[in-house]
Each structure stands twice: as structure tokens, then as C-alpha cells.
Simulated assay, not measured.
Amino acid sequence: MSPPPKRARTSSSTEDEAAAEAEDHPKLKQHETLWFEDGNIVLATDVHLYCVHRGVLARNSTVFKDMLELPNVGNAWNNEMESAVVEDSWEGKPKVRMVGDNDEDVYLLLMVLYDVGFYSDHKPTTLPTILSLLRMSTKYDFSRIRSEVTSHLERAYPRELDAMGERNFEDLFLNYDDLSSDYDLQLLVVAEQCNLKSILPVLYLDCVTSPMDTILQASRDLRLKNHQIEKLLRGHERMVRYAHEYGIIQFAPQQYCTMSCTKARGELLQNYVIVPQEYPVQALLEEEVPNDDDDARLRKAICKTCAKTISASLKEFRLQVWNSIPDLFDLGTWEDVRRD
């Protein structure tokens, strides 16, 4: 028996197909902002349908470019990462199912492509936006977006010691003071997944100077891998030791001095031990000047000879700590990091 002849598509049949598609996907709805009537491809998440432009996707993403240049676009297709599936059509337009992608991630990625003011590496944004754009730009090779996010992050997590004093997280994150205590650990997970090596040394440094309770809780909440937990614990222990050395170098130079100078340094060391300085290793690397009035008074009592000795010792110790950071986290040397 021969198959029945194909009917020509009519306006009513197209409407019928669209209605059938809607019945098959009752939970999906067109996105209010990112649905363009002149769009020629539909991206589908588990929440929304986004009608956008093939040319925009292909121009910015090598993954989409390769996928959309295939002769059978519109039929089922998986890329090597199983990240997107072109699985039939929607109202006559190829429909790409964004496998494993959160609806918010897809929305943020498309907003960067279609709204020039939505994200810039020169203005602060939210942590979820940074995490999302880093994940999606890496997964689909949106190289320009990944480059912008990388540049944004590198100002907060630099590769050069001279840049440590210029760190300003309020330039990176909106409402920085309201971020959760494990924000840097959240960023670490995504940065490692995306192989963003340039920020890892200083990011690890910030993570390991978190309170131990925060590190342990994050290891559970974020399901950190064993090798990550080992590096965090090892790094935390090293930073505690560095903090002790920092206090000794600042206030107990190996030399005898006048009674007033020795007494002032003794009181400063006692204060440092009893009321620990917050993030002392970062303070050392960023060359922060203590602003406590009592400490300032005591520091003035330190003689010029001891002050000069302390300054020279701290300069040497600062460089020692900085050079040790990449290797502490199995990242090689700073030259290796810059090369990557």
C-alpha cells in the first residue's frame, strides 16, 4: 500500500500544529522580553520559549555556529557535550532544547546578547549573574562574554602583587555587604569547572581565610570534591601559620632596643594575639595600614631603627607569601598562571 499524498501546508494547518505543540508543552510559555517576532530559532528550557536569531547565536558562539550550519537542522541532533538538542520545530522554526540548562541561565545569557547595557565588566553585578555567565559562556563558547567576565573577575582576584592593593569588591558585586559568607567558595566551584585558572590562586586564598565553619558547611552545601576540600584545609592551616609569622615580624624584630620601643612592640603583639586582626594575610598583601587609634599611638613609640627593620622584613615576607600561593593550591608558579 502506498503512503497517502502529503498535504500542502495551509494557514489553518500551521495553526493546528502550533496548538498541538502547545498541548504537548503545556508548562512552556513565550518569554515576554526575549520573544522576537522576526526571530528564526526557538530555544526551549523547562520554563520558557525564547524566539531569537540564528545569526546572533552563530556569530557569538562557535558551538551554536557549528550546530546551526549542519544541513539537517530541525531534526534531532546532540553536540558532543550533550548540551543542546535541535529536536523538531515550533511554529515552523527550529527548536533547540537547552539540555541541563537552568531557565535563568539561558535568560541571562540572551540578555547580554540583546541588551548592550545589561552587563558590563566596568560596572557591578550580582553573584548569580557572574556564575551564570561564566558557566554558559564556557559551555557554549561565547568567547566575548567569557572574556568580559574574566576581565571583571581578574580585578578582584589579580595575578600581580602590585594590583592587590587595588582590589574593590564593590566594583564587582552589587550589594557586596549582603553576600552570603560562602560567596567566594561558590565562585571557586564554578571557576574550577570552567578552568578559569587566572583567578584561582587569589580566589583560593580568599576561600581558605574563611572561618573553618564556613569552609566545612560549604563543602557539604556545594558538594566539594575531596581534592578541593584537601586544598582548602591545607591552605587554611598555612594561612594560620602565616598570620602568626606576620605578627612576630611586625612586633618582635630580633634586636634589643629602648624600653619604650620594646614595651610598645610587646603591647602591639599582645593586642594582635588577643584580638586577632581580620584577614591578616590579605592585609599584608594589600599593604593595608591599621587604623586603630590605640595601635597608632603604640606604633609611634617604635624607634626608627626597629621601624626600618620591620619594614624591610615585612617586604620580604610579603613577597614570600605571594610567591607561595599558586604552588600551595597545586597551580604551579605565577608564571604558569599567567601563561595559562
Rank of each mutant, 00 (worst) to 15 (best):
64 F>E: 06
100 G>Y: 08
118 F>C: 06
32 E>S: 14
44 A>H: 04
247 G>K: 12
219 S>D: 08
71 P>Q: 12
134 L>K: 02
55 G>H: 09
119 Y>I: 04
158 P>V: 14
151 S>D: 12
204 Y>K: 04
74 G>L: 05
302 I>D: 06
216 L>Y: 04
54 R>A: 08
71 P>F: 07
229 I>F: 12
132 S>G: 06
130 I>N: 02
159 R>P: 00
282 Q>H: 14
250 Q>K: 15
81 M>Q: 13
125 T>R: 11
152 H>N: 05
80 E>A: 14
115 D>M: 11
6 K>V: 07
334 W>K: 07
183 Y>V: 12
182 D>K: 14
258 T>L: 09
78 N>S: 10
64 F>Q: 04
12 S>M: 09
308 K>N: 10
279 Y>K: 13
133 L>T: 04
84 A>M: 15
300 K>A: 14
18 A>S: 10
76 A>T: 12
36 F>C: 03
340 D>Y: 13
195 N>E: 14
132 S>I: 08
34 L>M: 08
333 T>N: 01
305 T>Q: 11
16 D>R: 12
103 D>G: 05
308 K>Y: 02
116 V>H: 08
138 T>D: 13
236 H>K: 12
56 V>Q: 01
191 A>K: 11
198 S>D: 01
301 A>I: 02
77 W>Q: 14
215 I>E: 01
305 T>C: 01
268 L>R: 09
303 C>P: 07
65 K>G: 03
257 C>E: 12
313 S>C: 05
3 P>D: 01
191 A>H: 09
43 L>N: 04
184 D>I: 11
10 T>C: 01
197 K>N: 12
46 D>C: 06
17 E>C: 01
280 P>F: 10
268 L>W: 07
302 I>A: 10
103 D>L: 01
85 V>A: 10
46 D>K: 13
124 P>Q: 08
42 V>W: 07
128 P>Q: 03
154 E>P: 00
80 E>F: 08
149 V>I: 15
145 I>A: 07
51 C>I: 02
134 L>F: 05
163 A>L: 14
220 R>T: 15
252 A>Y: 09
84 A>E: 03
290 P>F: 09
337 V>T: 06
226 N>F: 10
